[in-house]
Each structure stands twice: as C-alpha cells, then as structure tokens.
Amino acid sequence: MSEPPVIELDGVYTSFRGHPVHRDLALRVDEGQIVGLLGGSGSGKTTLLREILGLHRPDAGMVRLFGVDLNEPDVQLQRNLRRRLGMLFQHGALFSALSVFDNIAFPLRELRCLDGDWIRRLVHLKLAMVGLGEGHGKLMPAELSGGMVKRVALARALALEPELLLLDEPTAGLDPDRSQNFVELIGDLQRELGLTVIMVTHDLNTLAGLATHVAVLADHHIIAYGTRAEIMTIDHPFVTGFFGADRRKLL
C-alpha cells in the first residue's frame, strides 16, 4: 500500500483583485520531508501556506492533504484533517486573553476526551519540549519576549501531535543565537516525531540547518523543487540573486 503524499497541490490558480498570485502551481511533499519554501517578498508564500491550511480557497486547482481534497464537503472529515496539522503563525497568534498554559491546553480541551491530569501532563511536556519551564505557564502572552512567543506558539502547534507542521518565518525576529537554538529544536522534534515540515523562510542559516528539500516560488509558480544540492544548480534570476555568492553556504 503506497502512502498518499502529505501535501499535493495541482493547477492552483489564485488572484487578488485581478492580479494573479499563483498560476498553475504544483507541489508534492512526501512524508518526513522538511521543505523550505523560498520566494521574494509578495510572491505569495504566505498565501500558499494559507491555501494548504484551507484558510484561503484558491480560484481554481486542487489541494490535497493526506490524500483528502480540501473541497470535500464532509465536515467531520475536514475537522479530523485539521487535527493532523499544526501551524506556527509568523507573529505567534497566541490567544492574548489566555495564559501560556491555557493557550497550549486549548486545542487539547477542545477534543473533550482528555481529563484534567492528562492535559496538564501534556502541556508541561510540550513546554519542556520547547525549553520552557512550568513557571512560564502562568504568564500572559503580552508578558513574553518575541522568542518566547515563538516557542509557545510552537508548543501550541505541537499540542495535538500533528503529522504536518507549517512554519511561517519561524526564525524571523530572533537573534542569531536564539534562531540557531530554534532551528535545532525543530530539527530534534522532527527527528523524534517524524513530522513533515513546510516552512517559509528568508534566512539562509535556517534553511541550511533544517531543510532537506527546497521549493522555490517565483513567476507565480514553483519553478524548482528538489534537494538543496539540486536547487543550487538551477539557473534562474531569483535563485542566483537569492543565494548570490553564498551558494556554498547552503551545502
């Protein structure tokens, strides 16, 4: 039995007010891959993530997660599908009215199957995973530093034990040291939990430290998709411009 790809996009067409963002975009991500999504500002990377999440419906084309079409009308099926993915929003998108503990406990409580003790253990486990202590659980999101917001948001994204993790600029706004820690953290988690990860990033170090595969979004579609070494050989103005003289750095 061959597993369906985790993500499969085909012929996706998106436009905003008549301006095409994606045109005939296709992408296929298999289980266990860590894909870095590259592209210039405004090339539609975040829109692509939102389409994978089902937050934005493309004008045309097909988006499949775990072999299930996002346009499938079955509500229960869609809800189960959402539980298999976790998203780290660029600015965290923590619920500002809830404490850190409640933020992470929220998706677990929503299942309405787990008892209080179970949820507490899981929340502390997730906090420990992202390197935060029990004391941090009582803080409110407004009291956290930028790096801690990202960690808590990651812990919340991991709360439901997702098989697919989407990261929007995971290291933007972190200092190089923190950013390196964060990269190692996600790498460790990926190895342990066997996640599939898609991340949007502009940071070469993040890309070099994490990604097994790279997808380049330019000219409204994925112009190249392959391992890091393969991408290096692509001759496209965006790729050469992006890596510039630092091509070696990626390898």
Partner: peptide, 20 residues
C-alpha cells in the same frame, strides 16, 4: 529505542501535577 525516548520524556516530568 525511539519509543523509549518518548516515554523517558514523560517519565522526567514531576509525578504530581497539581491543578492550578
């Protein structure tokens, strides 16, 4: 070994989880 690691992590947590 991989699954043992997962349980080790849980085992490292304090036994008693007092409710807030």
């Amino acid at each position: 070994e991989m699954h043992r690691q997962v349980i080790v992590r849980v085992a490292e947590l304090p036994q008693e989880m007092p409710a807030q």
